[in-house]
Design a protein around this nucleic acid. Structure first.
Length: 764
DNA sequence: TCCGATCTATTTTTT
DNA sequence: ATAGATCGGA
């Protein structure tokens, strides 16, 4: 038995032991929230609560996995394994698969990711003959998502005057129609999008009281992490499930609510006391992560927000270093200074690379940082950005797998019907889609059941389509009885994907092949782990199980071991819940952080401020903030004033010398003799857009320009390039199709060119 | 039907 | 800067 009083302070201990009835745990940043949650669950289990009757909902898969591990090490893996612990999406996807028939889905339903959803919406807009300049896919999707989060289905939406009036006001009166068609198409494809997982769970519980009853009785204890980031649909699910036992524990920090933009309602945590008047409240206010300076500085910033739960966060740690501010002229210089600062800290403080994180507001900012780090030979890893699962080649093979399991998955069908090329072009697909839509059928059913003599699809095309469905059919016959890895490998080969990809010998093509391999490896890994967990040794782990799991994974969920000791680069959003010894927040400029849209709206600005609060409180020992006077954006140079958040930090927590120098700079040498200690940063309200300096006038090739045979190129030659002009060959490397030349051009500097493609004329 | 060249819109943030 | 979309030619 674990001694639960050890390692816990008094409030934490109470929050752990007192596990009956509704509890609100307000957990400031770094206050040991995860520890309390894990211990509380472990405590439950060690007091005879059946793990199957505890439901623990987290925000990320990673959080769930880590918590499960820790609980496992406290009370034994045989208990923790049986817990219902995971993200809202994964837990309720699981429940929906079990209960699918109640709401008219198959238990093998597909989960559409954002790309799939967008593609379907695009098709809807097209089918309704609407202008896609007026009906932007992203806007429409946002609107539909908002509706679903409020449990408004398409029919209801159409009849809701408030909603339709809003759409009319934005001159998009037909969003309701798009929504309806979208809903039909998803249903027809036996597919749910992310929001559907929550919406349909609500519908399931609403329309089938006996099912609701079953889960209400089953989940005697419900715990929700990051409660401040739940949306309305999630809130309602929790509320319903908790009705019988009222044993609901929510943990969160209103100051760290940063997902309002996707429907999270900070009210959920603010109003907990209204929902459960008999609730008990625990405030975890002592920060064990950061120095006093960091905690106090963060407090001084968050004070500017109006709506929040009262709490008094403090640290008993050392006072620590003040917050440093790095100022630079360009974003490249910013990156260079940050990288240098990291190098120096590693040297002087004997820190490891993984003690450092560079946080930014937008993913686009990572590039400059990467360049600088690479130049300084600092190893780094990037979170977010283009997810592994979003890569074209990964989506392609996944589409084959999905289609093999669910023939009605139209998105998968469209994706691979002509990849590798089978001579099924857009004309054929257009006709097929028209026919399918007219008959309210999936594309698959249209191919296999409709008579095409009247629909205009040419007999030759029909033959090709039939060959395609037969190919998939041959996969399907193995899909449920073959091991997931064997199956996927087989599909990759027999679909022709691998041979097509092998033909592409370019570096990118090679990378794609590697990605495919990596995916196959991860399927293998999945199959192996799952196998071990199943008690029957000979049970086959089929691809269906993999597909159901993978739809809700993000690349944060497969960390590679070789990435352990590296500097972390990520957005502030994805840093939530993490901690690092040294944190750099870059791009501290108005219009970037806080982001452009937020400067106008107080509500949005408060969310940005919470985001900044999150950023600051990631750090254990030291925070460094940086901003740049100019920055590349959309190929232009823009100039923004330093972030207003900088001046919201109490001056006493800043390395003032640096800060004051900046103020003088920003003050346009207005008052040189101003000894006032007020840290006022002047705010040019508008963004100054500096036109891009016209570096390179396009090169006019000589009249006799005619590329020479690339095999003649040798080091030292003077050459002319069609676009880059004149230059000198510095080096030649590689051979055959991979032969590359490093050229220094007069106007464009050093470039590496693949000789296979570069058209070079030798100047003799 | 396929491929490439040109044009365009795009930037918050993600389960 | 760049990826995706569109359009025209082979």
């Amino acid at each position: 038995m674990v001694d639960f009083s050890k390692e816990l302070n008094e409030v934490q201990h109470n929050a752990v032991v007192d596990f009956n009835g509704p509890s609100l745990i307000i957990a400031g940043a770094g206050s040991g929230k995860t520890r309390v949650l894990t211990y509380r669950i472990a405590y439950l289990l060690s007091h005879g609560v059946n793990p199957r009757s505890a439901l623990a909902l987290t925000f990320t898969n990673k959080a769930a996995r880590e918590m499960k591990e820790r609980i496992g090490s406290l009370v034994g893996e045989q208990f923790s394994r049986r817990l219902w612990m995971g993200t809202f999406h994964s837990i309720f996807a699981r429940i929906l698969r079990t209960e699918a028939e109640y709401i008219g889905y198959k238990s093998s339903f597909t989960i559409y990711d954002t790309t799939d959803s967008k593609s379907v919406i695009k098709a809807c807009i097209k089918e309704l003959n609407l202008d896609d300049n007026v009906y932007k896919v992203g806007d429409v999707m946002g609107r539909i998502s908002m509706a679903k989060n409020h449990l408004v289905q398409a029919k209801v939406y159409q009849n809701n005057h408030t909603l339709t009036a809003e759409d009319a006001a934005t001159r998009k009166p037909r969003i309701a129609d798009i929504y309806l068609l979208y809903e039909q198409k998803c249903k027809l494809s036996d597919a749910m999008d992310f929001d559907d997982l929550l919406l349909n769970t609500n519908i399931l519980f609403r329309d089938h009281p006996e099912v609701l009853k079953k889960y209400q009785n089953m989940f005697k204890y419900i715990l929700v992490d990051e409660y401040q980031d739940t949306n309305r649909a999630q809130y309602l699910i929790v509320k319903k499930l908790a009705e019988t036992h009222h044993n609901v524990t929510v943990v969160g920090d209103d100051a760290q609510s940063i997902y309002a933009f996707r429907g999270a309602r900070i009210e959920n945590i603010l109003n907990f006391r209204n929902d459960y008047p008999e609730y008990k409240e625990y405030k975890l206010e002592q920060n064990y992560r950061s120095t006093q300076t960091i905690v106090n500085a963060a407090n001084s910033v968050i004070r500017y927000n109006s709506r929040q739960l009262q709490k008094n966060c403090f640290s008993d740690d050392e006072v620590g270093d003040k917050i440093a501010i790095i100022e630079s002229y360009t974003d490249q210089e910013e990156a260079f200074l940050v990288a240098s600062s990291i190098s120096e800290a590693i040297y002087t403080k004997h820190a490891d690379y993984n003690d450092f994180a560079i946080l930014y507001r937008t993913n686009a900012q990572s590039r400059a940082m990467e360049d600088a780090l690479r130049r300084k030979n600092i190893p780094y890893k990037i979170y977010g950005g283009l997810s592994f699962y979003q890569r074209a080649e990964v989506k392609d093979i996944m589409a084959y797998l999905r289609l093999s399991v669910n023939h009605d998955d139209d998105e998968a069908f469209k994706r691979v019907v002509n990849y590798p090329a089978r001579g099924i072009g857009s004309t054929t697909m257009e006709r097929l889609q028209y026919a399918a839509s007219a008959a309210s059928m999936s594309l698959w059913d249209a191919v296999t059941t409709l008579d095409f003599s009247e629909t205009g699809v040419k007999p030759a095309a029909v033959k090709k389509l039939t060959e395609f469905t037969e190919l998939i059919m041959s996969f399907t016959t193995q899909a449920f009885t073959t091991d997931a890895y064997d199956f996927a490998l087989n599909v990759a080969q027999r679909s022709g994907m691998i041979s097509v990809m092998r033909e592409d010998k370019s570096p990118e093509g090679l990378g794609r092949l590697e990605n495919l391999e990596e995916l196959l490896n991860s399927i293998k890994e999945f199959s192996d782990t799952y196998q071990r967990e199943e008690d029957e040794v000979d049970a086959v782990v089929s691809i269906t199980e993999y597909l159901q799991d993978v739809a809700l994974l993000t690349d944060a969920d497969n960390e590679k071991p070789e990435d352990r000791n590296k500097v972390s680069l990520m957005t502030v959003h994805s840093a939530k819940g993490l901690e690092f010894t040294y944190v750099y927040v870059v791009g501290m400029e108005d219009n970037l952080f806080p982001g452009g849209g937020a400067l106008m709206s107080p509500v949005d600005l408060e969310e940005e401020r919470r985001l900044f609060y999150v950023a600051l409180t990631r750090a254990e020992k030291k925070v460094t903030l940086s901003f740049s006077q100019t920055r590349y954006r959309w190929g232009n140079i823009v100039s923004n004033p330093p972030s207003r958040f900088l001046k919201e930090i109490d001056e006493e927590y800043l390395e003032s010398s640096v800060f004051h120098r900046q103020i003088d700079d920003a003050d346009d040498e207005e008052d040189d003799n101003n000894d006032d200690r007020q840290p006022i940063i002047r705010k040019p309200e508008r963004t100054i857009i500096v036109r891009r300096p016209s570096l390179a006038k396009p090169h006019q090739p000589s009249s006799d320009f005619r590329p020479d045979d690339p095999s003649e190129i040798e080091v030292g030659m003077d050459i002319e390039h069609e676009r880059f002009g004149f230059g000198k060959i510095e080096a030649v490397e590689g051979a055959g199709g991979e032969r590359k030349a490093v050229v220094t051009f007069k106007e464009h500097g050093k470039k590496t060119l693949l000789l296979k493609f570069a058209k070079l004329k030798i100047c003799r």
